[in-house]
Simulated scan of single mutants.
Amino acid sequence: MKVKNQTSMPSKYWLLILAVVCVILLGIEGFVDGGGPLRLVANYTIIPMQKGISYAGRYLSDLSENFDTLEEVRTENEKLQSKVDELTIDNTRLRQEQYELERLRELYQLDENYSDYQKIGAHVIANNGSNWFNDFTIDKGSNDGIQVDCNVLAGSGLVGIVTEVGPDYARVRSIIDDSSNISAMVLSTSDICIVRGDLKLASDGRIHFENLPNNDNEIEVGEQVVTSHVSSRFVQGLFIGYISEIQVDSNNLTRSGYITPAVDFSNLQEVLVITSTKQDLINSETDQNEGE
């Protein structure tokens, strides 16, 4: 059996003693005008706690403000990004419309240059899978008056000739195709030559010409070459391109060289098709002569 410690003092007495001490300290504090031990105790206990609480409050306040600011910035960034996306789409659309307008202007100018011929516009819808439009399909056919051997234009001049026709489509073989050969002439001298397609030269932006007479007519780089009047399938005067290189052949009787074509055969989107073939024009002229 444990014996109760008789010397322990009840808690209420300790509380009473502390209260008395506090009163005494307050009294002394009043007499010494706030410079006594309470101020010393406060300097080492209460004031640091107040500073810590104040610092924590400011930190939490700044953190809250920063969080609000971050949310505002994020919201603003989302709005700006949405605006940038919208402007990018608008800019892309405007550029596409500008490119289309430029192409249509080229076609319009081409139509004006060959106003003697009846023509119809068409879109290129497929090619043969290569990087060059040496054989491609357009979205107009016999229902639109197109027939085999109709001549096709784009850019600044001749593209090729129609080789196959369906009700709503037509296939075109361009002048750069390996199987293409055209009776052409130098515009300034009317000298006849043969222009042959060569896909190996297409990457250099050139086509080959040959059998140009080596006569007294001086022909220089930059001369224009057009379809000749003796061509059996191409109407006369269609612009093919500019002579970029010319030389005398080893037989000393003919000249040959290269032509820079008037059409960009790496990018064809719209074309003009002359709906009358060379034979149609010949027949029409014959009928007129007989009528006279």
Rank of each mutant, 00 (worst) to 15 (best):
I274Q: 08
G205D: 10
L110M: 14
Y169I: 02
G57M: 14
A154L: 04
K278R: 12
S266N: 13
S190A: 14
I175C: 08
K200G: 15
R255D: 08
L87N: 04
I161S: 12
N143K: 15
N211M: 06
V3K: 13
Y258D: 13
A19Q: 04
I176S: 02
L238I: 08
V124Y: 05
M185D: 09
N134Q: 12
S276R: 07
L268R: 07
L104F: 09
T69H: 10
E106G: 02
T7A: 07
I259M: 08
P48E: 00
E78Q: 07
Q147Y: 02
G257D: 07
L60I: 11
I24V: 15
L107A: 09
C150S: 14
A56E: 09
D90P: 00
L70D: 01
S183C: 04
I125A: 01
L60E: 06
L238V: 05
D216M: 04
D287A: 14
N252I: 06
V152I: 09
S174E: 07
I246M: 11
D111A: 10
I24D: 03
V165W: 09
S250E: 15
T88F: 00
R206Q: 14
N77H: 11
S244Y: 09
V271W: 11
K140N: 03
D149Q: 05
S284C: 02
G155D: 12
G27S: 14
I175N: 06
G241T: 06
S183T: 11
S228R: 00
T260C: 06
R105Y: 13
P10G: 11
Y55L: 14
V23M: 08
V186Q: 03
F234M: 06
K79V: 08
T88A: 11
S179Y: 01
D191L: 08
G145P: 15
K2A: 03
R233F: 02
N217I: 02
P10S: 14
L212P: 14
I246A: 04
G166V: 00
G145H: 03
I125N: 01
D111E: 15
V73L: 13
V165P: 15
F31W: 01
D135I: 04
V165N: 10
V3R: 13
S8L: 09
I146S: 04
N66G: 03
Y13N: 06
Y13T: 03
R58F: 15
L40S: 13
D90F: 01
Q98C: 01
L268C: 05
D62T: 06
I89T: 05
G145K: 05
E106V: 05
I46D: 00
D116Q: 13
E220G: 00
V124D: 02
R173K: 14
N91G: 00
R103G: 09
G52Q: 12
L281C: 03
E245Y: 15
E76N: 11
R74D: 04
S64Y: 10
V21Q: 02
D191V: 02
L272N: 11
D249A: 08
W132Y: 15
G237A: 03
D135H: 14
N267V: 00
L18V: 06
Q236N: 10
N43G: 08
L272Q: 10
Q147L: 03
